[in-house]
Design a binder for these strands. Sequence first.
DNA 1: TATATAGATGAACGCGCGTACAATTTGAAT
DNA 2: ATTCAAATTGTACGCGCGTTCATCTATATA
Lengths: 342, 342
Amino acid sequence: MTSEEIAKLCGVSRATVSRVINNSPNVKEETRQKILAIIKEKDYVPIASARRLAGIDSNIIGLFVLDINISESTTRVSKSAYFSQLVNLIIDQANNFGFQVLVSIITSEKQLTEIRNLFISRTIFSAIFIGAFNEESQLDDNIILEYPTIIIDRQSKSAEEKPNRLVINLDNFEGAYNATQFLIKSGHTRIGHISGDLRKLSGIERYKGYKKALEDAKLCFDRKLVREGNFLEDSGYQLAYEILEENITAIFCANDVMAISAIKAIKEKGLSVPEDISVIGFDNTAIGNYIMPALTTVDAPLEYIAQTCIESLKYFCKNKHFKEKEIRIKTNLIIRESTKEA
Amino acid sequence: MTSEEIAKLCGVSRATVSRVINNSPNVKEETRQKILAIIKEKDYVPIASARRLAGIDSNIIGLFVLDINISESTTRVSKSAYFSQLVNLIIDQANNFGFQVLVSIITSEKQLTEIRNLFISRTIFSAIFIGAFNEESQLDDNIILEYPTIIIDRQSKSAEEKPNRLVINLDNFEGAYNATQFLIKSGHTRIGHISGDLRKLSGIERYKGYKKALEDAKLCFDRKLVREGNFLEDSGYQLAYEILEENITAIFCANDVMAISAIKAIKEKGLSVPEDISVIGFDNTAIGNYIMPALTTVDAPLEYIAQTCIESLKYFCKNKHFKEKEIRIKTNLIIRESTKEA
DNA sequence: TATATAGATGAACGCGCGTACAATTTGAAT
DNA sequence: ATTCAAATTGTACGCGCGTTCATCTATATA
């Protein structure tokens, strides 16, 4: 079924059918209704590639989960509940606004080329990157810079030179600061930190927030109380064992998954949470509320992030530029049962 | 950059450039090399829509997570770790084979129309559905039936009439049967079951496997020991409270998430796992190994499912039909610490 | 009634590419 | 040198649609 055939059935020219489809005002209402009826009856949908070729932009957003293995033991972002959830929410929002979403998990530098190709071939008109490493990489490829791009969880170094780029970040620093401060106010003085991947902005900032809170409270920051993890189950579990040797009474973990597995390690050592050790996570993953004890954590409003992404993109489509260059999203401490006065 | 420009730069016609791009053998090797060099130098990538229009099929697979709310409290498939993981793995496999994946979460019947449109507009050439309800629905739309479609977790009623359809299912029945049998062999006689959504094949079959194992062991099946859940945290938690009233010593949960939250409920009641109550989950989610106690569960080999999906699709592309109509994937019982002799 | 004007429609071109078919070149055999 | 088949390359059309510009129709004004 083509617009040509629809036109014939309606006794009009293809141009008029096209006008109806593209909401041109210059069509007599009567004609419009007749054409719409036939279109509906015949289940006609324009061939997307033909529209694209004729100049209509793609409505597909590329959503790329950066999961590049620098070393063997690097974070597998794509496996974390946090990112899965965010991906889902972005897709949902996008669909609501009539966008489609093409998702790809980038595990090697080589695949970055494929992203370029998706742009050049006009398959996608925009890209959202999540889980990006902090370092500059081929993401700054000139080709990619031509198109509207949103980056989540990555520092913006020279935003002013990149008009088509929007950086959206959780206020990881503040979230970590508040979590740590909460522990301090509860009377804890020896507070450990199991960090995330320190090549990622979220890992770095949560670490910094933890450190700053200690310093502001005049508590001595002790490097030995910090262990570098990678946001995954195993590192939370292993590092909790190590950190428990340091005579601490609380641990701030850089995400829920590590917090949950840290709790397991703590229990295995014969200690209990929160009686002996308080534990705080980050992300407010669904399961956190359903473990024993329920996890105190920092809520990352993923839905709001997703919404912000798509609305910003919508804005870009209209105005050919983003409204802001950088957006910082506030977190919210959720106090449950894994923490207690010292 | 167009093939026309490349042709000009190479001093050949556009046809020859096109031949090189599409691996036609009828090009002199010397010419081919020269053209390839220029293509690489100029970063030329053909406009996808132009190729499509000229008859080359899309390489985009539509991956649809069916998450239709029939009632208010219906499962949100898209939120479960199980499906997120499966989605990730399918994307990965697809990318390996040169396919792209467009993901969409279908939350209303209305959106099914959009799937049709994606086909009709030739945006996607194939679809994979996961989390499908057991009932027949618009999925059997004639349009959709024209294209290669894979359905995961749904009964195939009349496969013979649907040549372009492949059904891939976990052997949920056997997995549940083995899990239950394991509990029986461990000496448990009053074994409860927190089921999944019983409108889904996985929910139904896991329930049936549980029941059959009891019957085969001459243990009396008691409907009161079964509670219908929906695969989500909350139902595992709530229903565990209920089911504990029935004087049981073990619970088989239809997935890990419910098992984990059931454990919380059990502990809150002052009982311990596995000393008082043994708990088995299903899925072998990552976190299951990092809770206390580590969860005994049924492993669903998601990676293998993903692989099977994409290989089947690859086969279809070559032969214009699927090799099989239905594939059943074996599970594997993983015994950890949440179960114990009665 | 003649004329101007806004409103509605149609004809035709171009978007970039694949490919059938025609044209040309090459190389070997005579 | 001539011939012919095979290898290689070019020409030209069609894929389905958006849109400009020209054309036509209906209405209002003089």
